[in-house]
Each structure stands twice: as C-alpha cells, then as structure tokens.
C-alpha cells in the first residue's frame, strides 16, 4: 500500500501544515506591509486617520521635480554601480587568482573589508576625505593640480551623485570580487590548461574563456547589484542627506524625506510603490532575458 494512502487525510495535508509557519511569517512581515503600502498610496494619511484621494498622489509624481531627480539618480546608481563593480571586481579577481603566487588570502580579505564596515563609519571617513581645505583628497589635489580649483565633490549638484556612487563602488567591489573569485575557482583546470596550450594569453583567456564561462556569476551579480542599488539609503542619507538642493536624492531618501520630515505619509507610500514596481520590473526583465541560466550550461563547458 502506498505510504500516503496509509496516512489517510493527514498524509494529504501534512505538507501544507509544514509550510504554515513560513507562509505566516511571509504574510505578516512581507505581504501585509506591501499591500498596506500600496493601499496607503491612495490615501491622505495622518497619524490619526486617512482620507481616500484616489490617484492624486500618482498624478503629483509627474510634477514633482524632487521625485524626478530621485528616479533618474536611482537609475544612474543601478547602471553605474553595477558596471563599475563588475568591471573592477572581475579585474581584481583575475589579478589575484591568476597572477598572484603569494598573498591571495590577504588580498581577498583586504578587498572584502569595506563590505563589513558600517555605513556610518564610511560616511564619516569619506566626508572627511572629500572635505575642502583639510581633506586628504583636497591635499592630493593641491599637490598635483595647484592651479585648478578643487571640485566640490559633495557640494556641487552636478558632481555629488557621482561622488556617492564612487563610495558605493568602493564599498561593494569587494563583494563582486569575491563572487568572481568563487566563479573562477569553479572553472575546470583542464579548460585553463587547454587554453594555455592553445596559446591563449591573459587577454584572450580572460575575455574569450573565463568571461563566457562566468555567465552565471554575471547574472547573479546583475540581479544582486540591481537590488542593492535600489535599496541604497544609508550612504546618501548620512553623507549628503539628499542635498544639496535635492541633487543627490534617490528614491529611498526621497521616501524618508516625504514620510518622516515633511510628514506626507501617503505620498511617501506612493514613491515606495513606484520603487517596488521598478524593482519588480527590473528583476522580472532580467529573469526573462536570461531565463534560469544561473548555472553553467554543458554547452558552455564544452
């Protein structure tokens, strides 16, 4: 007699019982806040109650220059941080794994250290480094380019977002590096040896052999990088607060400003909903484009 028939109705429902805790936790801490947030975006919300206002907040987005700046900056964060972190992470991984004989462990640790530093410390360090008149970057600039005015890295509205992206790249490249190191270690030795026997030097090896074989790592990093860039908040909040004149606002800091400084809780929920939709669209797009190809296919190996 089959096992599930012997167990009777319990056998049929036992699986469901086992998933109840996970579903309950997901429902309470993920699904409920998400649904509640979307609902709030249609209300004028105060601490004591809320009034239904339909799509007014969504129409307001079109005429809100701060939201538009935040949206553009968030997209810039995604594109620039991922491009820079992938390029630097891959380059460093190649140098350390393929060209270093001694000290690999040291460099792996060194590049990963920024990942474990709290954003508040990073913000203090970089604010001091970039400060005009006493910062280290200023000192270097004065020594190398004494006749050129020092750029307002954190005070120039045209530069500030790029400066902050630079800080993010400094912090996160180590993570990308580590994943590439793990990816490189998965490439069979025979493949490397065969390529070398065929006369492949550093450039062909890294661009025509490793790069395609690391496809699953690229896709994973693309996905994680997108989520990380969209979730960014502490670096911007702590270093510039979104300024000057909202020039460095991203969606996360704009939500905070609207919700907790200007007390527009409903409008903040609207921006949060836009952020949610943007994240979903980008992730679904990536999954659609690259499918489930998060593992190395046999064809690639061959």
């Amino acid at each position: 007699m089959p096992l599930n028939r012997r167990r009777g109705s319990w056998g049929r429902f036992s699986g469901l019982v086992y998933v109840v805790p996970a579903v309950a936790v997901f429902g309470l801490f993920t699904a409920f806040p998400l649904v509640e947030n979307v609902l709030w975006s249609f209300y004028h919300v105060t601490l004591t109650g809320k009034d239904f206002i339909g799509t007014a907040h969504y129409r307001q987005l079109g005429s809100d220059p701060v939201f538009q700046t935040a949206l553009v900056n968030s997209l810039l964060w995604i594109v620039l941080t991922i491009a820079a972190q992938m390029t630097l992470g891959y380059g460093l991984a190649l140098l350390v794994e393929d060209h270093l004989v001694f000290g690999r462990g040291f460099f792996r640790t060194l590049f990963f250290v920024p990942m474990v530093i709290t954003p508040s410390i990073i913000s203090i360090v970089f604010t001091t480094l970039y400060a005009p008149s006493y910062g280290a970057v200023y000192g270097l600039w004065e020594a190398l380019l004494p006749n050129l005015p020092f750029p307002g890295l954190l005070s120039d509205p045209n530069l500030v977002t790029f400066t902050l992206i630079g800080v993010n790249v400094w912090q996160w490249t180590g993570f990308f590096f580590l994943l590439y190191v793990a990816g490189l270690s998965q490439i069979p030795v025979e493949v490397r040896e065969a390529a070398r026997v065929d006369g492949a030097g550093f450039v062909p090896l890294s661009t025509r052999v490793y790069l395609p074989m690391l496809r699953p790592t690229h896709l994973t990093l693309l996905l994680l990088g997108t989520v990380q860039a969209l979730q960014q908040f502490p670096l911007v909040y702590l270093i510039t607060g979104g300024g000057p004149d909202n020039a460095s606002q991203i969606l996360g800091t704009d939500i905070f400003q609207e919700g907790f400084i200007l007390n527009h809780l409903g409008y903040a929920s609207t921006i949060a909903t836009v952020l949610l939709i943007l994240a979903l669209v980008l992730v679904v797009l990536q999954l659609r484009l690259f499918g489930g190809r998060f593992t190395v296919s046999q064809r690639t190996l061959e």
Binding site: T128, A131, P132, S133, G152, S155, P244
Partner: peptide, 16 residues
C-alpha cells in the same frame, strides 16, 4: 568655507 553645501554643522563643524 568652500564645499559648505556638502558639510553638516554637527558633528563636522562643531568638532573643527
């Protein structure tokens, strides 16, 4: 000071 738009009164300014 130069770069004032990128600096906070506290803690940076107060400490200096």
């Amino acid at each position: 000071q130069q770069g004032a738009l990128g600096q906070f009164q506290y803690p940076t300014g107060a400490n200096l």
